[in-house]
Design a protein around this nucleic acid. Structure first.
Length: 126
RNA sequence: CGAGUAAGCUAUGCGAUAGCGUGAACGCUUUAUGGUCACGAGGAAAGUCCGGGCAUCACAGAGCAGGGUAGCUGCUAACGGCAGCCGAGGGCGACCUUAGGGAUAGUGCAACAGAAAGAUACUGCCGCCGUUUUUACGGUUGGUGAUGGUGGAAUGGCGAGGUAAGAGCUCACCGGCGCACAGGCGACUGUGCGGCCCUGUAAACCCUACCCGAUGCAACGUCUAAUGGUACAGUCUGUCAAUGUCUGCUCGGCAGGCAGCCUGUAAUGACGGCUUGAACUCCCGCGGCAACGGGGAGUCUGGAUAGAUUAUCGCACACGACAGAACCCGGCUUAUCGGCUUAGUCGCUUU
């Protein structure tokens, strides 16, 4: 992968869960956030809810393949975390690719993408 | 042909495009990197239930406690594994199952039922004595031992003899126990003799024999940036006398706590450990019933580190189960769509 580093620190994962913007469908849930670096950083999370080790590996591979296909289209300078959901083990990789293209990339390019989400959360609490 | 038994093999295949990890040589002044070639999950990789290797330690040693194993002989690095055999049980048979030491070392328990779950007693049977015509009733009495609806289990079973009534009291057969002899490395088997003391339970405590230090690769080792005196370690000095640790306890050993000075180290990251090993394949007029051992030739073919070993499409058919290495081996157990091979057994039909 050309412009991409892997995320392997629990600290980074927690920061994204709390402060990142999110997009989701049945197969996966994506958090993202600007990181002020010249590269993208990606992490893939497959929890035990997914199933056994074979299913989790399958989900991880499909997501990685989808990311690879979309990589050149993405803006640079983001942290991204993809959490696999139950559908990810059975679906084809182009399903996730199209999800990335139609939903995720437009939002990443939108400068106001994650401001409204934070406000929205606060408003719900009030 | 059908039914059944045992052992073993296999684990969708092929192609196209794109991509990932490791290694090799090549290209480039070097780095970055580039294309090329080779290789890249399993029979259970799983559960983590046993056994080892390897590593570390505040490991002297002894005893007790604790844990494990439990027919015999062998195999093995070792085992709770495997092989062969013995005993017991099941099947017409091929064959299968077996947590299979000790109940005369001791203690405990045996609900309900039943007279009784150690045995003394009660009830019964018979003798004797007394009362009485007999029957029957009674006894500070003697003998006897299993008749007593039960129960998982009742003093070996069953038959005959025997007797006042009975009883292994005697006898035949069967079963158990002990001793002797014979066979076997041994578990054990066979034969003979003997007397009848011997309820079950040890996945109840316990006894006997043998074995066991703890922790696991996030073990452990090497190198290193920055900061600050934060944490840890060490020497020395002063002071305190309680504590920690060696699986638990005892003896015993080892280490001390606090303050000050000085010296050093660690956190982070990288690399090693990390894959050549009790390895795999083939062969032998090799040894052994076998597990296994010996010899010869050849191969080396996962080593990731947020974790590579794939994604998408097409074709074929029997429409694809369970399932993904994380230090490495030997087993066990559990999950599993199907397909195939070999060797015995029983039954039927035909010749």
């Amino acid at each position: 992968m050309l412009f991409t580093v892997k995320i392997n620190k629990n600290k980074d994962f927690l920061a994204l869960y709390n402060k990142g913007a999110a997009v989701s469908d049945n197969n996966c849930l994506v958090y993202f956030r600007k990181n002020k670096l010249p590269v993208n950083r990606i992490g893939i999370s497959t929890g035990k809810k997914m199933g056994n080790a074979v299913k989790r590996s399958r989900a991880r591979r499909v997501i990685r393949q989808a990311y690879r296909e979309c990589e050149l289209l993405m803006p640079i300078g983001f942290d991204i975390i993809v959490c696999a959901r139950k559908g990810a083990a059975e679906c084809k990789s182009y399903e996730i690719t199209s999800f990335f293209r139609k939903r995720l990339i437009p939002k990443m390019n939108d400068p106001d993408a994650f401001k409204p989400r934070n406000k929205g959360v606060k408003n719900h609490k009030k």
